[in-house]
Design a protein around this nucleic acid. Sequence first.
DNA 1: AGCAATGATTTAAC
DNA 2: GTTAAATCATTGCT
Length: 433
Amino acid sequence: MDDQSRMLQTLAGVNLAGHSVQGGMALPPPHGHDGADGDGRKQDIGDILHQIMTITDQSLDEAQAKKHALNCHRMKPALFSVLCEIKEKTGLSIRGAQEEDPPDPQLMRLDNMLLAEGVSGPEKGGGSAAAAAAAAASGGSSDNSIEHSDYRAKLTQIRQIYHTELEKYEQACNEFTTHVMNLLREQSRTRPISPKEIERMVGIIHRKFSSIQMQLKQSTCEAVMILRSRFLDARRKRRNFSKQATEILNEYFYSHLSNPYPSEEAKEELAKKCSITVSQVSNWFGNKRIRYKKNIGKFQEEANLYAAKTAVTAAHAVAAAVQNNQTNSPTTPNSGSSGSFNLPNSGDMFMNMQSLNGDSYQGSQVGANVQSQVDTLRHVINQTGGYNDGLGGNSLYSPHNLNANGGWQDATTPSSVTSPTEGPGSVHSDTSN
DNA sequence: AGCAATGATTTAAC
DNA sequence: GTTAAATCATTGCT
């Protein structure tokens, strides 16, 4: 207010009246008597200045009436142009102080995150990436689909709230900006307000609103993070695999008991079959190996079960293979088998008929499969052939797979490590011995 | 509530 | 990178 009154004093004392400043001259009272011509002009200026000064303090109705009178004042145009000039000069320093700011890095981070989470961005398919991540992290299967949809629903909810709020803010911002601009434009007729100043004011308003928007974005991000941690932290919400998935994994495990290290391709295939991720397959095999090794006795029943389960198909497959070999090349049993043997067999059955490229496994694969079948058959033979060590029916199956060191007999090195360049025909490298 | 089973994570070794 | 081993955290059964 000091600057303003000083400015007005200068105006009244020097620029307009043409007189030198009279030391510390206060504004003339608004209602004074008319004196000489000079005095009268001074009185006019003082009056009009006072009116301009107070017009913003008055109510709109009051101001409306006064504005009209003010605009009609004979001194108004001259005074107005001078006020504008002074305002422009003082405004320069202000303008220099606050130039347009660079994009806020924090805001950019929030925007990026919201975009990545599918909260902002296009409506259709929004959140699919995050939802897919949720599906992958929480472990597939039918149980997971419930969680998946639940996650999606919650994310959609957040998304809706976010957009509604954002729209509200934007609308309010626009309304307010328009209102202020109208007000300033209106006032620019009576007060020295330049278009640039209006622009600056709009900028200030937008900045204010964008800071509010940032708060909204921040809280939305927080909500998404909480949602994610709740749904995606598998440890917090562990889901057991479906029975079918466990069965598939167990079948593979027990039919490859001699070397239960599925190759990368086999893991992928198992993951696909079980609707879980490859790392979940790895986890499962890791857990299974260690738990089996730790307590073989406990798993004997299970081993027998799966051995018996695959025995019939294994027997059929081996029989067919033998028959096939005999018919194809009776003199050299192994020479002709590679090209024609493609029957389902044993534990590999669920893998071999649909390799990654859709072809049947043939050629070198056959040897591995037969070995696997022999593994399985050996269990079954032990079980059904009456071999009994006298310790009871459940101890039929002997853990021939483990060596004295506690390692897997045939598992010299895990297949995925030692044979990364295996061809597509040797997916089951872990069974070839 | 107690417990076993089980999927995931961590750590260390390779 | 993978793996074994230990451990954590949850699920599901009794």
